[in-house]
Computed example of a mutant assay.
Amino acid sequence: MTRKDMETLLLTDPFNLQLRLDLANLYVAEKLYREASAQYSIILSQNKAHTEALEGMRNCQAQLETERGSAGLEAPLNPEEGHVPGRLALVQGHEENGNRSNVVSLHQVAKKESVKFSDIVGMQALKDTLRLKVIEPFKNPGLFAKFSKKRGDGILLYGPPGCGKTMFAKAIAHECDLEFISVDISDILSMYIGGSENNLARVFERARSSKPCVLFFDELDALAISRSKVQSHHSRTLVNELLNQMDGVGKSNEDILILGATNMPWDIDAAAKRPGRFSRLIFVPPLDQAARRELFRLKLHVIPTEKDINLDHLAQSSEGFSGADIDGLIEAAKERALLDMIRKNSERAITMSDLLAAMDEVTPSCHDWMRTAENLVKFGGVGSGYKDLARYLRA
């Protein structure tokens, strides 16, 4: 069997440890030590006592250290940590310009995020909540271990679109000093029967080989839609696979912080929101007035503006505007100013009138979402899990 055949076969049977071991040994024979290390690492993530994989990893470690030492580079990570830098793929060596429909690889998507809480304007109450419920268990594991409180869990960030849910997920990873693995729906969905489920399983295996880490699913409602609302068998089995992976049957998700973000939490399957899965729902509200003022200040500071800009008035007049809405408002003001410059053939800065005129053109996206949320919380029977949202609506 050729290397290409083994790589392709591994796609259909990604948990075949003997096949993966044979592929790793073949990489060693071809002196592809980094690729071999990646395969040995995946084997050890599933069976830490696998003697052949341990021996193979040590051999690759020695070869890589020799190569790096001769090149004056730093040594690779300890193989016992179960993590190899660079690309970590379930299938290696595929043709980059060839037919990718049959050979798919999971690339290195984990990285240390640079977004900090201090980069997010306002939202202090939400930051305090996230520090207590999410960040401190990772930064002070000893304290939480005394109460048999495990690190890692599922947390669902929900709220209107454009209010920073993805930004908060990245900031959480930075504050916890964890690798951040972001998963898009396009990484999961496949046109082939069973392909989506296999892709989802590979994502979780990737996270388990990188512990501790943050595993982030954006637009979770598209992946975990309520099974009572769909008729497609494919959608149901994909939700079942997600629930199975989150339960960690035969595996351990400890030290994996699973974050989800959605604008439609009521469309997510109820089983995904029970304790042990996405057990904590945290509401990410629209920006308050102080946060909107600061965002206007930061955005307008880097472009030419007149001295008549009244930040307080802009903040008061933009109730219900998300951060994305404010970006859109400023872009509309820029377009008005540029069009005027083209017509008059003279340059000028953005004025307060440009911003106010743009504000009339931009519809705040939070208003429709809040009206829908209010109706669902009051009359829609979505359950009692939206206490943060209910308190916000009362206020």
Score class of each variant (00 low, 15 high):
378 K>Y: 01
55 E>S: 14
324 A>T: 12
258 I>N: 01
290 A>G: 06
144 F>I: 06
325 D>H: 04
377 V>K: 03
181 I>P: 07
362 V>T: 07
170 K>S: 09
200 L>T: 05
260 G>H: 01
385 G>F: 00
8 T>A: 14
79 P>W: 13
338 L>Y: 04
372 T>V: 10
101 S>R: 15
132 L>Q: 15
54 L>M: 10
371 R>H: 13
285 P>L: 08
81 E>Q: 08
126 L>T: 15
365 S>D: 08
247 D>L: 02
26 L>Q: 15
278 F>S: 09
61 Q>W: 09
71 A>N: 08
140 N>K: 15
390 A>H: 06
98 G>A: 08
122 G>V: 06
198 N>T: 12
282 I>T: 11
129 T>L: 11
43 I>P: 04
391 R>V: 13
374 E>Y: 04
381 G>C: 01
118 S>I: 01
124 Q>T: 13
179 E>W: 05
111 K>L: 04
163 C>K: 00
186 S>N: 13
17 L>G: 01
104 V>R: 14
289 Q>H: 09
188 I>E: 04
76 P>T: 05
68 R>H: 07
339 L>G: 02
294 E>N: 13
73 L>G: 03
212 P>G: 00
164 G>M: 09
169 A>P: 04
319 E>V: 10
265 P>H: 04
81 E>D: 07
21 L>M: 15
283 F>S: 05
37 S>G: 10
206 R>G: 00
237 T>S: 15
376 L>M: 08
12 T>N: 14
152 G>Y: 10
216 F>T: 00
305 T>D: 12
336 R>E: 05
113 E>Q: 14
333 A>S: 10
106 L>W: 07
58 R>V: 14
111 K>D: 07
211 K>Y: 02
342 I>W: 11
336 R>D: 06
205 E>L: 09
250 G>T: 09
64 L>W: 03
73 L>F: 02
116 K>V: 04
101 S>I: 11
9 L>S: 14
179 E>S: 15
265 P>S: 02
255 D>P: 06
145 A>D: 14
72 G>V: 12
230 V>R: 07
